[in-house]
Write a protein that binds this DNA or RNA. Structure first.
Length: 807
DNA sequence: AGCACGCCGACT
DNA sequence: GTCGGCGTGCTC
């Protein structure tokens, strides 16, 4: 095939948040080598270079005036295969976002290349003799110091928003020049190894040891260690000789007794397994085993309870064929499970742990290894995009966990649903695990779309909960701030027994707020409709929505009074109350202020386990210590906050959460919930019935009132700086969509937080039947409505974000 | 996303 | 008068 007879073009995806593809021409010498799935280097805009992904190679001349040519082919072989593109297309179309954004979610950032502009000197003359402006002088000195300087760094150096004009002027005077370079950021990790000098034989070595080194005891000692280690492996990691000082080794190197070698090592391969746990050591109920064996013959999605996870793994392990891969999806990085421990120990060199917090270089190595061969991949939702070589099984743990749904940035995909599609496309088997399945999965199971749910056994744990009626307590004057007398008594009893207590309050604004003593004004964010909270750790007032930070706020914005005070709310207030009631107790607070970051949380956790804390007060983070053996009491100060959120799923999620705690807690731990209204149906359910009873009762209500899982939902949020414009846009959107879809469209709705990032939000909610044609029709209408809005001259700058299947 | 172009107020 | 602020629109 001779491709070079005609002109070729490529449509590429750029690593930018842009809709659609862009077309470039392919220079003849590159035509033979180009293919879909490779990255190419292109100029986009004035001078910036990007690594763009080839989405289509074709011969149809695009009808644009200016068609640039690709500069370069970056990958000799495609890095994305046809199946991955098909998967991306599904995500983009189902969740209504551009392919470019899917690409950004899918690729390790190392693959998303964009250039930096550099400046360098163009003249040898000493410019300080010229009439330089102050800014020019700063730039000149910076360039004289380092040969190439990023223009971005120069911008920071000058503290200006734009230095483009300045640089251009200096370029015109032929003082400097600028150029663009794509940075290849991957750096392999190297490790120092030591080996005996290859020219030495045993006799020579013993000679050296006895004669040459007779007066260097330390060197003798080191050589002996190296010789010993050399018996099992030729090259010895420097780290395994940590006890030997560097100067000793250096001396041996200089005497040509040993050599140093730099080896490229993997960041992801773990050391040898710490302890052997064998699947064969796991007791498996033969009935269970038979059931799972039968399940594995069928193709449908399966839904099982947690107790069936290890038998399931055992079963697929038994049928394992070399090269097969298993993906185990977990809701978040910290998720721990016995089954994962078994895999990590058993297959230490054949499993990968992946999550979105890993550094670029690690992700790059993971990508590489998954492509080659690795048996188990344990990871969070972004692992769905890995380039699997031969994926045979997907296991999704804690199926009901809302963390599986991505919110920002787009694509707002749900890992459970996306995993089911992936399994279908790859003809892999998929099994969801949960003791408290989401209503969505229960319905699918009920309608026999899924197979074989067996209720988890120890399900009726609710009767271990004790409710405290705050209304009654208030009437009896048995209420002390946030605490009922009953609760403080229970805490006191626990403390007397030298046991530990956890107090939980679900409240977002946990840190203190700045309040005006004169007029009750509270410091709020200039961009969002929320109060600023004070963070002790950074000593700053912070907005949780837009990350606005202020060092200090001197006066009240209402009455200009300077008489301001920090007042604790949420968990901090609880902590203060507890300190008054139990002055002798060791009380510690845990929330994202005191425990931001994993390390700080771990420190608190260790302290708690070492019994250096009597009472732990906090948000749901605190509940992670639920399995501590000396935990006597866990109490929810206000259970109502958990279930009365403005979200139709709040009771479902609360039940799932409380049940997971009940399952994890020890027998000695008591659970107390304070409520102003303990007669609410929810409390009856959680105390009296098992999850399935509760779920089916609530699902009937959802069906009656047309809520998921019986209908599908799409949320539209329209955002604009001007409230009236956002409202008008939302109104027009509703009118437009109602014409075709009638009652399925609801809104405009003002959300509970009206303003965020300096923009007013107005919502439109769509509820529609679970039929494919309806779904596609509505999505088409949304695109049309979008187009219609952008044609209204005053609404052009209204931003619309779309959330399909919101959580 | 970044950059150009165009329109406004505050300053040598 | 100009410099530089931001709002808007375009990039193959």
């Amino acid at each position: 095939m001779n491709k070079s007879l005609n002109e070729y073009y490529v449509d590429v995806l750029l690593p930018l948040a842009l809709e659609g593809t862009f077309s470039y021409s392919v220079p003849t010498p590159l035509v033979e080598r180009i293919a879909k799935g490779q990255r190419v280097e292109v100029i986009f805009g004035t001078s910036k270079l990007y690594g763009a992904l080839v989405y289509k190679v074709h011969q149809n001349k695009p009808k644009y005036k200016k068609i640039k040519a690709i500069l370069n082919i970056i990958d000799e072989k495609p890095i994305i295969n046809e199946q991955q593109f098909t998967y991306w297309e599904w995500i983009a179309s189902y969740y209504m976002c551009s392919l470019g954004l899917v690409m950004q979610a899918a690729l390790p950032s190392h693959y998303l290349l964009s250039s930096d502009a550099y400046a360098f000197l163009q003249t040898d003359n000493d410019l300080l003799e010229e009439a330089l402006s102050l800014e020019e002088e700063i730039i000149y000195r910076a360039l004289r110091k380092d040969e190439f300087v990023k223009t971005h760094d120069l911008k920071k150096l000058l503290g200006k928003k734009s230095i483009l004009g300045l640089l251009r002027a200096m370029t015109e005077k032929k003082w400097i020049r600028t150029s663009h370079h794509i940075q290849k950021t991957y750096k392999s990790k190297t490790q120092k190894f030591i080996r005996l000098h290859p020219s030495l034989d045993d006799d020579q070595l013993s000679n050296i040891y006895e004669i040459d080194l007779r007066r260097a005891a330390k060197q003798q000692e080191a050589l002996l260690a190296i010789i010993e280690a050399s018996e099992s492996q030729k090259e010895i990691a420097r780290t395994s000789l940590a006890h030997i000082k560097s100067n000793i080794l250096k001396a041996l190197e200089e005497k040509n007794i040993i050599v140093f070698i730099d080896r490229v090592v993997s960041r992801i391969e773990t050391e040898e397994p710490t302890k052997k746990v064998n699947f064969s050591g796991v007791k498996i109920d033969p009935k269970q085993q038979k059931k799972i064996k039968n399940l594995l013959k069928k193709d449908a999605v399966q839904l099982l309870n947690d107790a069936e996870l290890i038998p399931y793994l055992y079963a697929i392990n038994k049928k394992y064929q070399p090269g097969e891969q298993t993906l185990i999806l977990i809701p978040n990085i910290d998720f721990e499970h016995e089954a994962l421990t078994i895999i990590q120990n058993e297959y230490a060199n054949d499993f990968i742990f992946q999550n979105s917090k890993q550094g670029n270089d690690v992700r790059y190595e993971i990508w590489d290894k998954v492509q080659k061969d690795v048996r188990f991949i344990i990871g969070t939702r972004s692992s769905l995009f890995l380039p699997f070589k031969n994926l045979k099984h997907i296991l999704l743990l804690q199926e009901h966990d809302p963390a599986y749904k991505q919110f920002d940035p787009s694509p707002r995909y749900h890992a459970r649903d996306a995993a089911i599609i992936l399994a279908h496309q790859l003809k892999a088997k998929i099994c969801l695990f949960s003791n408290t399945p989401s209503f969505e999965s229960l319905l699918n199971n009920h309608q026999k779309k899924y197979l074989s749910l067996q209720k988890a056994e120890s399900n009726n744990l609710g009767n271990e909960i004790e409710l405290i009626d705050l209304q009654k307590a208030a009437k009896q004057r048995a209420l002390d701030g946030s605490f009922s007398k009953k609760l403080t008594k229970e805490i006191a009893t626990a403390l007397e027994q030298n046991a530990q207590v956890i107090i939980i309050k679900n409240r977002r604004g946990y840190a203190p707020v700045l309040i005006c003593k004169n007029c009750d004004w509270k410091a709020s964010c200039p961009n969002c409709d929320v109060k600023l909270t004070y963070h002790q750790f950074s000593k700053k007032f912070i907005c949780h929505y837009c990350d606005y930070k202020a060092r200090y706020i001197p006066t009240c914005k209402e009455c200009q009074s300077t008489d301001l005070e920090l007042k604790g709310f949420g968990t901090q207030k609880l902590e203060e109350e507890l300190e008054l009631i139990f002055p002798m107790a060791k009380i510690h607070r845990v929330d994202s202020d005191t425990a931001s970051g994993r390390k700080r949380f771990q420190i608190i956790q260790e302290k708690f386990l070492a019994k250096k804390i009597d009472i732990l007060v906090g948000t749901q983070l605190a509940a992670k210590m639920i399995n501590a053996s000396s935990l006597k009491l866990i109490a929810f100060v206000s259970g109502d906050q958990m279930i009365n959120r403005p979200d139709f799923r709040s009771e479902e999620k609360a039940f799932q959460y409380i049940q997971s705690l009940l399952e994890k807690k020890g027998a000695q731990t008591k659970v107390l919930i304070q409520s102003w209204n303990p007669e609410q149906a929810f409390y009856h359910s959680i105390k009296g019935s098992d999850y399935y009873n509760f779920a089916f009762k609530r699902m009937r209500e959802r069906q009656l009132f047309h809520y998921p899982p019986f209908v599908r939902m799409i949320h539209l949020t329209l955002k604009h700086k001007e409230k009236s414009i956002a409202e008008r846009a939302a109104h027009l959107m509703v009118v437009f969509l109602k014409k075709k879809w009638g009652d399925r469209i609801q809104g405009p709705i003002t959300p509970s937080i009206e303003r965020m990032f300096g923009r007013y939000h107005v919502d439109v909610v769509i509820k529609h039947e679970k039929q494919r044609d309806k779904m596609e029709g509505i999505k088409k209408s949304i695109y049309e409505a979008n187009l219609f809005l952008t044609k209204q001259s005053d609404l052009k700058s209204v931003r619309i974000s779309i959330n399909v299947d919101p959580q």
